[in-house]
Simulated scan of single mutants.
Amino acid sequence: MQTFKEGYRGLSVLVNVNFDLLLYVTTLALAFVCAGFMGSL
């Protein structure tokens, strides 16, 4: 259980550090999906 807690804490730190990168990639992917939808109309 302790190992699971430490791993979860490490994952949480990793997500907090890379949150801006994750947000950037998500926004870019959403823009491509919207552009593809608008292009298909």
Rank of each mutant, 00 (worst) to 15 (best):
C34T: 11
D20P: 02
T27F: 00
G7L: 13
R9K: 10
M38V: 11
K5D: 12
F37Q: 08
V13K: 06
A31I: 04
L41F: 06
L22D: 02
R9C: 03
M1S: 15
L28H: 00
C34W: 08
G7T: 15
L28M: 05
V17P: 03
L14F: 09
V17R: 10
N16P: 00
S12R: 15
A29G: 10
Y8W: 06
A29V: 14
L14M: 04
V15A: 08
M1R: 12
N18R: 11
G36M: 14
L41Q: 05
V25T: 10
L28S: 03
F4G: 11
Y8R: 10
R9I: 08
F37T: 05
Y24M: 02
L14T: 03
Y8K: 08
T3R: 14
N18Q: 14
Q2M: 09
A29D: 06
G7Q: 13
A35L: 04
V13T: 09
L30E: 02
N18T: 15
A31Y: 01
S12F: 07
S40P: 09
G39L: 14
A31M: 02
L21F: 14
M1Q: 14
N18D: 11
L14G: 03
R9N: 05
L41V: 10
F4W: 14
T3Y: 11
E6Q: 00
L21P: 11
L14E: 07
R9T: 10
F37R: 03
A35G: 08
V33H: 00
D20A: 15
A31L: 04
A29P: 04
E6A: 01
F4C: 15
T3P: 03
G10H: 06
M38I: 13
A29Y: 04
S12W: 09
V17L: 05
M38H: 11
A31T: 00
L41H: 06
R9P: 02
G7V: 15
S12K: 15
V17W: 04
S12Y: 07
L28Y: 01
V25N: 06
L14Q: 07
S40T: 13
F37A: 12
V33K: 01
V17N: 08
A31P: 00
G7I: 13
F4V: 14
L22C: 01
L23T: 15
G7P: 15
Y8D: 01
G10L: 12
L41I: 13
V13H: 03
